[in-house]
């Protein structure tokens, strides 16, 4: 049992979400699952969570803990079994898809870059939630698209085909598309998976800039705990469909939490440059993961 990690019982989770000043996006006793009737599997179980505005929130946890499902639920892609996702205090299921798309941009893990499509053409898709059925491409749309490409630092490649670009460039193009949606909220599902270290840093620094300079609320699922510690303002640690710790990485990440999440031993030291927690000496633990459940 850990003492220093914040451990929440469901009742305490409620309190925690009310402490932050009514975040734009939050969940209320959200339960999400797959399958039908008897074979129904609950992936997220009664989750109450607030995503702080203007911050980078990283959702971390072992494989299959429900991170991506939570993100899909937040973006209205999945109908909750019970509970709700609240956007500006309103149940997201009662909002029109278009209205949601004007407030939340989603970059899923699974994207497809069709052949022959250029960066500029991809980014234009981001304007779809703002376009009427008959409305033409406007000057304003064009300037938003250009600004999005500038923000994602991809403007110099705007006429290049996606299929001819590196993974990092392509990911920046996709982020530019999400930016063109001009939403206060940006949900990213493993934005740096399949990228090498250089490209990872590129994307994470872009994400940080978006939150801190452009005041966007960013929620990202991150596989790598080390990057989450380094780049997130707020960390949500999930295990088996529940939030087991939540808060600034420097406060919540402890050897005990890491053991509970991933079943590994490690030591933590503050990063000499940024002060964020740094994991060192990671090795397998002999203790079984299930034994340390709260």
């Amino acid at each position: 049992m850990s003492v220093d990690a914040k451990q929440y019982s469901p009742a305490q989770q409620d309190c925690a979400s009310h402490l932050s000043l009514a975040p734009t996006l939050k969940t209320d006793a959200l339960t999400l699952g797959y399958g039908v009737r008897k074979q129904r599997v609950k992936v997220i179980d009664g989750l109450t969570l607030g995503l702080p505005d203007g911050k980078v929130t990283a959702i971390v946890g072992p494989n299959g803990c429900g991170k991506s499902t939570l993100l899909a639920g937040l973006a209205r892609l999945q109908l909750p079994e019970s509970g709700s996702v609240l956007l500006e205090g309103k149940d997201i299921q009662h909002l029109k898809r278009r209205d949601v798309a004007q407030r939340i941009a989603l970059l899923p893990q699974e994207t497809h870059s069709p052949e022959g499509v250029t960066v500029h053409e991809l980014v234009r898709f981001g304007r779809q939630p703002h376009q009427g059925a008959l409305s033409q491409w406007s000057q304003q749309d064009q300037s938003v698209v250009t600004a999005a490409m500038v923000a994602a630092d991809i403007e110099s490649l705007s006429e290049r085909e996606l299929s001819s670009m590196s993974g990092g460039q392509r990911q920046r193009a996709w982020i530019a598309m999400a930016l063109a949606q001009q939403t206060p909220l940006l949900l990213l599902d493993e934005p740096t998976s399949a990228l090498d270290l250089g490209h990872q840093i590129e994307v994470f620094e872009l994400i940080q800039r978006l939150a801190h300079v452009e005041d966007k609320t960013i929620v990202m699922v991150v596989h790598d705990l080390a990057s989450a510690c380094r780049y997130a303002d707020h960390l949500v640690a999930m295990h088996a469909g529940r939030v087991i710790a939540e808060g600034p990485p420097a406060e919540v990440v402890t050897p005990a939490l890491v053991r509970q999440l991933y079943g590994v031993e490690c030591r933590l030291i503050p990063d000499p440059d940024t002060g964020t927690p740094l994991l060192i000496g990671v090795r397998r633990t002999h203790e079984r993961l299930s034994g340390s459940a709260t």
């Binding site: 899909a72 973006a75 209205r76 892609l77 029109k96 898809r97 278009r98 949601v100 798309a101 004007q102 939340i104 941009a105 989603l106 970059l107 899923p108 699974e110 994207t111 497809h112 870059s113 069709p114 991809l122 898709f125 981001g126 779809q128 939630p129 999400a178 949606q181």
Partner: peptide, 10 residues
């Protein structure tokens, strides 16, 4: 562009 991308665009 992908099922989820289309949903995300409304």
């Amino acid at each position: 562009l992908g099922e989820q991308v289309a949903s995300g665009l409304g």
